[in-house]
């Protein structure tokens, strides 16, 4: 019986969390516009985030491009559509796989990192110490991190797309004897702004979600070292979930535009 009542409680908890997160986002927008701006810290965060996740994005992107091409080749050949390979792979990477996989990788790397970092700063009273020494910790820690992820994720997505396409081209070169030049020409012919723009806009939102949830979980971390672990962990879970929701909404909206 108790089990049955647990579910509504969990759902209620979930909606409370969504409410708190929205409130947190509202505070972010309010404080972003207020002086003084922490440019130096923003640049440092951008550099760190790019630096920390670049290798990961490069490796996963490359493998995804490679694997996707290897896996879909036989089917395409069966249909006699071998020459359509670059189009198919190019579009699926740029529109969907590139942004989503890069964002998921970054959720694991960056959101958990932010959650743990801010969480331990909360627990060891470093955030309080900032507050009493006249620096607004929300601006210094949260605003800079959310802006950094929002700005950096689209760049990482472009990077991920590029290596994925390169991985795919490599397979085509060795297996289908398609030259790199021909491959990339076909891909760029197939792609239009209608593919690039929604994907880029989507990436900004992905970046925003990663920073927002990571900071939210860390900033309101519960006392104790268990709290820090929990903050990092739930940051990843919650971000990943949010990424798919955003992706769904984004695809839905861009679909409406394609119809027009």
């Amino acid at each position: 019986m108790a089990q049955v009542f647990q579910v509504p409680k969990k759902i209620r908890r979930f909606f409370i969390e969504i409410g708190e997160l929205s409130f947190f986002a509202g505070r972010f927008f309010k404080e972003t516009l207020r002086q003084p701006f922490e440019f130096k810290e923003l640049l440092r965060q951008c550099y760190q985030m790019g630096n920390r996740s670049m290798t990961l994005v490069l490796v996963t992107g490359f493998i995804i491009g490679l694997v996707l091409t290897l896996q879909s080749r036989p089917t395409m050949i069966q249909f006699g559509a071998e020459s359509w390979m670059p189009n198919m792979v190019g579009i699926s990477i740029v529109r969907e796989l590139g942004p989503v996989i890069t964002a998921l990788v970054c959720a694991g790397r960056i959101a958990s990192g932010i959650g743990a970092e801010l969480g331990s700063m909360r627990v060891t009273e470093q955030i309080d110490a900032m507050e009493v020494s006249g620096t607004n910790p929300f601006k210094y820690l949260v605003v800079t991190r959310i802006l950094a992820t929002t700005l950096m994720l689209p760049l990482l997505v472009i990077l991920g797309d590029a290596v994925a396409l390169y991985g795919s081209a490599l397979v085509e070169y060795f297996k289908g004897e398609v030259s790199f030049r021909l491959y990339f020409n076909t891909v760029f012919d197939a792609l239009s702004y209608g593919d690039l723009i929604p994907a880029t806009i989507k990436s900004f939102f992905f970046g925003f979600a990663i920073g927002l949830v990571g900071c939210f979980k860390g900033y309101y971390c519960k006392k104790g070292t268990a709290g820090v672990g929990l903050a990092a962990n739930t940051a990843v879970v919650f971000t990943s979930m949010l990424l798919f929701v955003i992706d769904f909404v984004a695809v839905f909206i861009s679909d409406i535009f394609y119809e027009l």
């Binding site: 331990s120 700063m121 060891t124 009273e125 470093q126 309080d128 110490a129 900032m130």
Partner: peptide, 8 residues
């Protein structure tokens, strides 16, 4: 602060 709270 009780735990020093240095920025680590």
């Amino acid at each position: 602060f009780q735990g020093s709270a240095l920025y680590d």
